[in-house]
Design a binder for these strands. Structure first.
Lengths: 218, 218
DNA sequence: GACTCGTGTTACCGCAAGTAACATGCACGT
DNA sequence: ACGTGCATGTTACTTGCGGTAACACGAGTC
């Protein structure tokens, strides 16, 4: 059994797969998260079963698509995080990178932010019990873990650093995501302002702020 | 046209509506967010069309259900936010209240955290274009706005307070949500530890922390 | 008793996910 | 040259869900 032949087949399959993913990408970009398998197949010039042979089910396609974008975004974020500058500047640049990305392709990120959710396979009966948690998108999870790792590697906050880093990683990512989502919907200010405000929050300006006169304080 | 009769009808309709919502509640508690209209109707001892007469469509039922829980949760949060204690303690208590809630009824909150999303009505063709943004759950939005208002009312951070308050409101809520969601899935620590860590983050411990030796810093 | 009106039903449509089962083209071992 | 695999493609189907139309019963009103 020579491996060259198998490699050939695999290569062609991989190329096809990439083509299909690009078609899917186009459709998602156009139709948002509710893009149907039929529509994607049509865009790719083929029919549904091929998609299913390549990706198993919709979740599989979703996962593959998500990974592409997640990888791309994460590498941008890593670059921002690794740039040679003081910490505050790096944090701001990272926030801005994320926001620029969701601003440029909202439909895609709207798609990415959802869990599998459409996991109601017909024959399925078991396993719908209590798989609680992990309802949030893989993208968020991955970003959270990634940031956690960066924090843990580079920051020294004494004992319990590891735990703290993970909490902070997910927390910061969540903050970024929610604020970004809200901002995208209402556009209440410029991206730069948003970035500054969020960085201020992380820099403890909330804790430092003085109470307003008259109230019970905050 | 006497109004007493109409009031009677309305009252009975309202009671029925509440019964239906409680049935829906039970189903969502059991089946999670993918609870079907059929299942809910069955739980209520009736059939689908009645649900549709009461709530219009699934989004309507979702909205009604969401409002109940959102109201309940928000009033708890407000209580925590209004308690007579120093700021840090109030923030921690608010975080803990939220986390306790999602811990107690994960399925419900999993349900609440989703947008309408199932908005593919059959006859619908228009309006699926670019309604970008507002993809996140009403619950998150409402919590964000609420917190923003509290911050704006009670905090003095100089000019631009209003804008800052809204950004912070949504950001903090997002942080809480994402961290909570992750925590619920992995249970890496106790609720109290999580609360402390998040409060530390808001208190600027990230900015204060020293760089670890050797790395490029963070 | 006919009229209406709210409550309930069955039976259906449209659509999307996912699956058989069948067809075709291309590389091979003999 | 010829069958044998095997990937690629198709059409046609099943299942399940959101949503609706059309009909049926029961209680008050004139």
């Amino acid at each position: 059994m020579d491996t060259t032949q198998r490699t050939d087949q695999q290569r062609s399959a991989d190329r096809r797969r990439r083509e299909l993913l690009e078609a899917a990408d186009r459709v998602v970009l156009r139709d948002g998260p509710q893009a149907s398998m039929n529509a994607i197949a049509a865009e790719a010039g083929i029919t549904k079963p091929i998609l299913y042979r390549h990706f198993g089910d919709k979740g599989g396609l979703y996962a593959a698509l998500a990974q592409r974008h997640t990888d791309a975004l994460l590498s941008s974020l890593r670059a921002a995080l690794d740039a040679p500058a003081e910490r505050r500047r790096r944090v701001e640049s990272t926030l801005d990178t994320y926001l620029a990305a969701i601003e440029a392709r909202p439909q895609v990120y709207r798609f990415l932010m959802h869990p599998a959710e459409g996991s109601t396979s017909p024959g399925d009966q078991a396993e719908q019990g209590f798989d609680v948690g992990k309802h949030s998108a893989p993208l968020l999870r991955r970003m959270g873990e990634e940031l956690a790792q960066v924090i843990e590697e580079r920051l020294d906050v004494g004992p319990g650093t590891q735990q703290l880093a993970r909490v902070w990683g997910h927390g910061i990512v969540g903050m970024m995501h929610a604020a970004g989502d809200w901002w995208l919907g209402e556009r209440p200010c410029s991206r730069a302002e948003l970035v500054r405000s969020l960085a201020d929050l992380l820099w403890g300006r909330l804790a430092e702020a003085g109470d307003k006169a008259g109230g019970p304080g905050f």
